[in-house]
Design a protein around this nucleic acid. Structure first.
Lengths: 196, 196
DNA sequence: TATTACATGTAAGGGGTTACATGATTTA
DNA sequence: TAAATCATGTAACCCCTTACATGTAATA
């Protein structure tokens, strides 16, 4: 259960569930999303399991805050996970399934528009990543000497996002070209046939 | 529910659940996996829903085969989905979470070994994809004129796999370089401090 | 005055996996 | 004789999302 380990990882300093949600969105969201409800449920489970301990704290508005911190057992579990083999999840891409069966529509114009929307989305995500690279990590030329070890590893995962997103944008360009070329070719062939 | 649409898409010609499992593994697995148990449950649901119809068929070994085919309503549902906006799922990568928190171990050697294993896995997947490009699609130089429209779109999704996998292998190389460089730099700095 | 931010939770349900049950035929 | 292939299914469970419930304080 990776969400367990991510929560343990984020709790290098104690925090509340609410704060953890913000941390998810600020830091790991590009490869792992979590909803508040899931975070609260997981925190209680990890506490019962002995990986987290709670202490109550006051809040300015709303109910009392439950501040969670790692226990030694929690830290050990995190370290064991980090020292274990890299884990691969199987990936699911709905839009690729749509492309896969797109011949069913026999509509080249729609295919092109579909890819254009895909490209717009991916290009947006890419520019968000590039912005984070500058703003949060202050990396422009490529040097990472100014980063702490923590920030260094975090930056590496952002580089993954940047590289795969770049590949996806290029894929959209390749695919758009291929579809347009094929549509053209089909149209010309249809025209020739009419002349025969 | 994308698995519904993928099953509808694969059922251009009627097939049994067992055959569909093989089709998943042969064709869409690189972006969508499904287990037999899930396929059987889904087929029954789609039938009750009126998107599929069944007829029984004999089998050489084992129980009678249930051969599923699309109804007009099923075909319409598939086409409506293909004509709708591209759908994006949020992605989860456990191994990136491991990298993200890797500083916790302060062990540069392990980090390098971790990335090497990642790279091996990704390089394997990439070469599998390249093999399929040659074997199933017969694409060597890049031309796709010999493919049917169906095969053409299927090929495009494989191109996505090839491009993102290539990006991931390159990311591994970048990361390995960065880690080694940083480890070196830290070691030298530690050495200098001892001399001071 | 309405919305947003803070703060914690429960409940229902969707989508998926793993394990189990059954059983015939072919192949090693 | 054991394992793989063909063939269909059920049940338990896991992970996660959406919707709901509750309530205060600051802000627009």
């Amino acid at each position: 259960m990776s969400v367990d380990k991510i929560i343990l990882g984020l709790l290098r300093r104690p925090a509340t569930g609410y704060e953890l949600k913000a941390a998810f969105d600020r830091t790991v969201r590009h490869f792992w999303a979590a909803e508040l409800s899931q975070i609260y449920v997981t925190l209680r489970r990890l506490e019962r399991q002995g990986w987290l301990k709670v202490r109550m704290g006051p809040s300015l508005k709303g109910p009392a805050r439950k501040i969670y911190g790692r226990t030694p057992a929690g830290r050990a579990a995190l370290r064991a996970w980090l020292a274990s083999e890299p884990t691969f999840d199987d990936e699911r891409y709905t839009y690729l399934a749509q492309v896969f069966f797109m011949a069913e529509l026999s509509d080249w114009e729609w295919s092109v528009r579909f890819i254009e929307r895909l490209r717009r989305k991916r290009a947006d995500q890419l520019s968000t990543f590039r912005q984070i690279e500058k703003d949060r990590f202050g990396v422009h030329g490529g040097s990472t000497d100014h980063l702490s070890d923590e920030a260094f590893y975090q930056y590496l995962t952002l580089r993954s996002g940047i590289r795969t997103m770049t590949a996806r944008v290029k894929w959209c360009d390749e695919v758009k070209g291929r579809i347009e070329q094929r549509a053209d070719w089909k149209r010309r062939r249809a025209g020739n046939k009419r002349k025969d």
